[in-house]
Design a protein around this nucleic acid. Structure first.
Length: 828
RNA sequence: GCGGGCGUGGCGGAAUGGCAGACGCGUCGGACUUAGGAUCCGAUGGGUUCGCGCCCGUGUGGGUUCAACUCCCACCGCCCGCACCA
């Protein structure tokens, strides 16, 4: 026997050779059908973690499999390289520059990825912090600016005191904490740059329907985030004043049930209403108190609903009635119009509020077969019913009522039908250094002036003080700030905020097609050839953030005529987390397993195999050291088997010829069965775990086959089985497959071989075992010739002595034969 | 509260209407061996039986079906996301 399985030597050998021979280099075009396989690029933190290993192992199997299937595969990798950790490291350690820190990390992680043997075309590597990249991020900003999709406004924004910067709504999670550091965010009134993603709300929502290859879960999350709701805006005049209050409601049919009006504490009308009223001070105090609350407390569902009367009334234009106007903490300025009509009988929140403050409750929808009584109601009735106490609308159903009331309101100028979205515009300004500068110049004479395209990139200056002050560090860098106005040539100042890193990652998948193009963000022909991404793979934590932003960018680019696709990612796979002891791996829990250690100890092939074998890709995966051992043992088993039979199959043909019988025929059949199973598991369902178990079964079968005397074995059958085994294993464990492929005499890389096809003929069995059930319970098994008719099946089964015994004295009611599987006899 | 998902041996997981527990881990037994935590072979859901068998078993209760882990209804538990959205 040859030497033992020396994974270290083998993996190093092949990684070097693949690199030298540029095995994974992808030409821009090909006559073959294309396949763009993409994994979410990582932030260069410095070290790969198991989540990365899982992500890239999954992607690599897909890429290698598709390549063997005859596709021209694009499989690139790069770095989401701008971001806070680099800057924070610089602040903490003082002597390291974010750029250097980032580049060191990229080097380290690139080396680790290469050690894993992932089939990337490294010539296409991109890093978002490279001026050659962010030049185009800035260029894209300008395209949005020119279209009115990038704008600056003063608005209440989310401020993370720990990160010392503002955040987009999508980056505030869990009712009010920073997505990165979990610090409760504060609200600040600041002038900031936004992308008008709300202009695309409807398309972002509607086109979710096109994404058949996306998990339902992600689509639902995006749908909820966009939060479309249809209803009406109704206008209420303030009694004795010129002012009007506009409310948004999804239930215009309940307008006759309005018994009060509520404004958000931030509503601009509040101050005007209360000025000079006896309630003035009380209201101001209330508003102050609510506004000073932290976002996380205010958003809490358990927060007691509170409100105060303004001393002012408004007129319900439908009834002519006056109802009191209140200010309450449960009304949000950010949603709708910041004002709500109170209909306690038909809205649970209003109901609770009305009961607390003794506001009247008026039923205007009667549910079928029930009489609602405001006195005895314990909760609001929000369901369907018939309109009552509603003047001319009495008798209409909820749906009819909604239409009729809106129509009436429109005719009388009292309001209009309206659609509301929860989605807010994307705040992209960041008061930090390590990001792409926003290419804008402020001139006293000309105002806001975009940097001309020929002046791009606006380079990040290297020498900057990083201390977080709440202002961008660039602001204290005079060489950066002071410039000339591109329009009038006069002295001007640069915008000092940088862009949210999610801007950089919203278009990187286009750049991979033209990574070194200096004249344009991408070559149109190349983008048109490769896009959309056929398979995108990454963590579900980006279900909203990155995936929504990328979809938005793509739609903007489509409208700008820069790309031909409306959706960037055809199929999305969201992989599960890697857990240890039932919990996410984390420093604080001390349950981290380092990929480096595993690769060092067992090799990349084992690491990859285990992570793919332990669970289906979209499910969470429980790490198991013993499971890893098992995979290592399996690869050793493959190694011993192939090296042992190598001499025996050396001269044999790759395919058996003639009619096979007995064990040879059986081995031949099992080989083709394995090919079928592995092919289908990868192609149809991405079930790599069951694909691997099928390969294991093939290996087990080969060990059995080797038990039969050598004179009875067919070397061609053995050769076929071993070659197929290696081909099937190649996407999962590329190094050992390559080494053994060479060991059995091949010169060309196994990764250049076509994926094996299975022979339908070979799968056919002469005899099959069918199960005999009596009343649905398995009672006997019979070996019958394959392909016999159901009639014959019945006959054979009924002739069995055991079956006859079981049927003794029973009345046979029915016999159900299932071809090739079983016969169920129903008796009494 | 709303939305999505999950619930199967000692463990990770197979099986999407047709033999529940593939494959792997663990455990037990055997072989080889000076020895083996290496390797090879075998057993391994529970109960009962000398054994052939038989009975029970996929969170719980009901239903559909010749046949249910799988489909339907109700409930319980866990995980994830959103959460006063008017």
């Amino acid at each position: 026997m040859r030497e033992r399985y020396n994974f270290k030597e083998i993996e190093a050998k092949w990684q070097a050779r693949w690199e030298k021979e540029k095995l994974y280099k992808t030409p821009d075009f090909s006559r073959k059908p294309k396949f763009y396989c993409l994994e979410m690029f990582p932030y260069p933190s410095g070290k790969l973690h198991m989540g990365h290993v899982r992500n890239y192992s999954i992607g690599d199997v897909v890429a290698r499999f598709k390549t063997m299937r005859g596709f021209h595969v694009l499989h690139p990798m790069g770095w989401d390289a701008f971001g806070l950790p680099a800057e924070n490291a610089a602040i903490k350690h003082g002597n390291v520059h974010p750029a250097d820190w980032t580049m060191d990390n990229i080097r380290a992680m690139r080396a680790q990825l290469k050690q894993l043997g992932i089939s990337y075309d490294w010539d296409r590597e991109v890093a978002t912090c490279h001026p050659g990249y962010y030049k185009w991020t800035q260029w894209l900003f300008l395209q949005l600016y020119h279209r009115g999709l990038a704008y600056k406004k003063k608005a209440p924004v989310n401020w993370c005191p720990s990160c010392a910067t503002v955040l987009a709504n999508e980056q505030v999670v869990g009712g009010g904490v920073c997505e990165r550091c979990k610090t409760p965010v504060e609200r600040r009134e600041l002038e900031q740059w936004f992308f008008r993603i709300t202009a695309y709300a409807e398309r972002l929502l509607k086109d979710l329907e096109l994404l058949e290859g996306w998990p339902e879960k992600v689509k639902v999350m995006q749908e909820n985030w966009i939060g479309k709701s249809e209803g009406a805006e109704l206008r209420f005049k303030v009694a004795g004043m010129e002012e009007e209050i506009v409310v948004f409601t999804t239930r215009p049919d309940t307008v006759y049930g309005v018994t009060y009006m509520v404004l958000a504490p931030e509503h601009p009308l509040v101050e005007k209403l209360v000025a000079g009223k006896p309630q003035e001070e009380e209201v101001r105090e209330f508003v102050r108190r609510v506004r000073n609350m932290r976002e996380i407390d205010r958003a809490s569902t358990t927060l007691e609903k509170e409100g105060v009367f303004t001393g002012v009334f408004c007129v319900n234009p439908f009834t002519g009635e006056q109802v009191p106007i209140l200010v309450a903490n449960y009304v949000l300025m950010e949603y709708g119009t910041g004002a709500v009509m109170g209909v306690p009988a038909h809205d649970q929140r209003d109901f609770e509020f009305a009961r607390k403050y003794n506001l009247p409750i008026r039923v205007v929808i009667q549910p079928p077969g029930e009489e609602l009584d405001p006195e005895t109601m314990t909760c609001a009735y929000e369901g369907d019913g018939v309109m009552v106490n509603s003047g001319p609308f009495n008798g209409l159903t909820k749906e009819e009522g909604i239409k009729a009331v809106v129509k009436y309101a429109e005719e009388k100028g009292l309001g209009r039908s309206a659609v509301n979205y929860r989605l807010r515009d994307w705040l992209i300004s960041r008061q930090r250094y390590w990001g792409a500068p926003i290419p804008i110049i402020y001139c006293k004479a000309c105002g806001t002036v975009p940097v001309p395209e020929e002046d791009l990139p606006v380079l990040l200056p290297r020498e900057v003080e990083f201390k977080p002050t709440g202002q961008s560090p660039l602001a204290s860098c005079p060489e950066f700030v002071n410039t000339r106005c591109p329009r009038c040539g006069g002295p001007a100042r640069r915008e000092t905020d940088t862009m949210d890193t999610f801007v950089c990652s919203s278009w990187y998948y286009y750049r991979y097609t033209s990574p070194r193009d200096e004249n344009q963000p991408w070559d149109r022909a190349k983008v048109d050839y490769w896009l959309p991404v056929d398979q995108y793979i990454g963590g579900v934590e980006h279900a909203i953030l990155h995936l929504l932003y990328s979809r938005f960018f793509t739609k903007v680019l489509y409208d700008l005529g820069l790309v031909s696709v409306q959706e960037p990612f055809t199929n999305l796979l969201t992989q599960g987390m890697v857990l240890k002891d039932g919990a996410k791996m984390s420093k604080s829990k001390g349950n981290i397993v380092s990929p480096e250690d595993i690769v060092e100890r067992y090799g990349a092939d084992t690491a990859r195999l285990f992570i793919l074998f332990a669970a289906p890709p979209e499910k969470d995966l429980e790490w198991s050291d013993q499971g890893v051992e098992g995979c290592y043992r399996f690869l050793n088993r493959v190694w011993r088997l192939v090296t042992a039979v190598a001499p025996e199959i050396a001269g044999a043909p790759s395919r058996p010829s003639g009619r096979l019988v007995g064990v040879n025929r059986e081995m031949h059949r099992l080989t083709h069965q394995a090919v079928k199973k592995v092919t289908e598991d990868i192609e149809k369902r991405f079930n790599f775990n069951t694909a691997i178990s099928a390969i294991m079964e093939l290996v087990n079968a080969l060990y059995q086959y080797r038990e039969v005397p050598e004179t009875d074995r067919d070397p061609a059958v053995m050769r076929e089985a071993v070659e197929h085994l290696l081909l099937l294993l190649a996407p999962f464990a590329p190094h050992i497959a390559e080494e053994l492929w060479e060991a059995i005499g091949h010169r060309e890389s196994i990764h250049r071989q076509p994926w094996p096809a299975y022979d339908q003929e070979a799968l056919v069995e002469d005899e099959i075992t069918i199960v005999v059930q009596v009343n649905g319970r398995v009672r006997e098994r019979v070996l019958v010739p394959a392909g016999i008719s159901t009639e014959e099946m019945k006959e054979v089964v009924l002739a069995q002595p055991r079956v006859r015994q079981l049927l003794e004295g029973k009345e046979v009611l029915k016999i159900i034969p299932v071809p090739g599987k079983l016969v169920n006899i129903v008796v009494r």
